[in-house]
Design a protein around this nucleic acid. Structure first.
Lengths: 168, 168
DNA sequence: CTCTGGCCTCAACCGAGGTTGAGGTCAAGC
DNA sequence: GCTTGACCTCAACCTCGGTTGAGGCCAGAG
């Protein structure tokens, strides 16, 4: 196995891939998108600092709960760029996400607990339901829950009250 | 406005679009994918039963918390196909999703609360962390958290222990 | 009878989030 | 000094979740 040597604090792309479980191509992609950074050796190979593993774990965990790479990048951009982030830095990032993650957790709870009373009930009370929240910031661009226009319950009542049909 | 008549239980695609906040093209798309169904009039127009509004609300809510259309379809397929689902049907569906939604909620809590101790701590305890869970069923195909191979903490220790580099 | 608006189909396109493959460089080991 | 394998770049391709547009049908109003 040629060129397995790295200093204690530097990791090759293959090492990061193996240890994070993310494909090399995805790491390249994240780097192009500015979510992670690398230095280069004299022969143009990437070297990652160890905190990259944390960044990647953060990326995958966030992504897995439905947050877009763009939003993840914005969060990561709040970490200090020119020193290794400390636990306090990560804690600040964590705190900044609390409210937004709380929103998402609430939505999941709503979906889990209130499915029956909200959707399964006889009343079709969708227009007051908290499942159909006004938009939130975390969602990938247009995919958020849309607010239902306040429409009377009687059928075929589409007069001229700003239809809110999404143009998107 | 021509052809606004529908029976009390039938909705046109435009009505469903307006009342659910989902674009007509998306409704067509959902129908192609088998997430909703329609009957046709003599002149080939779609007519939706009223429970379609519930289905669509369910689809959007689920989607919004990061669940793929494929998984949503599988859930909806458990509803009875040849009668209007009752509240009990929706309740069963809801119950079936509880565990999976619970998993997702737990992951969000982990991301929110344990970011600091898990990622931000000094120990890099990623391989035991519950953020890096074994795969779950809900994730869009390959995007789930990947299990890290059990790798020793010392650097450059990639010998022949089944690398588990994802082929994907 | 024509005009209008809502609906239809089908194909092309889009952005996100990557993967695959061709072709090339470099360093360690035999 | 050749081979091997890890790495490089760049372009093409893929799936998902839709949107857009062209071209056409049909029903009701004027």
């Amino acid at each position: 196995m040629p060129r397995a040597h790295t200093t204690f604090h530097e990791l090759t792309v293959g090492q990061v891939a193996d240890r994070s479980g993310v494909a090399i191509s995805a790491l390249h992609f994240y780097e192009r998108k500015g979510l992670i950074r690398s230095t280069r050796t004299a022969s143009n190979q990437r070297r990652y600092s160890r905190d990259t593993l944390r960044r990647v774990a953060f990326i995958r965990a966030s992504q897995h709960v439905g947050i877009s790479l763009t939003a993840i990048k914005e969060a990561l951009d709040r970490l200090p760029s020119e020193r290794t982030p400390t636990r306090d830095d990560w804690a600040r990032l964590s705190a900044a996400w609390r409210t937004e993650l709380d929103t998402r957790i609430a939505q999941l709870h709503a979906l889990r607990d209130d499915l029956t009373e909200c959707i399964g009930c006889g009343c079709l009370s969708l227009k007051v339901c908290h499942l159909t929240n006004p938009r939130d910031v975390l969602g990938r661009d247009g995919s958020g829950a849309r607010r239902l226009p306040t429409v009377p319950e009687a059928p075929a009542a589409r007069s001229g009250q700003e239809p809110t049909r999404p143009t998107r």
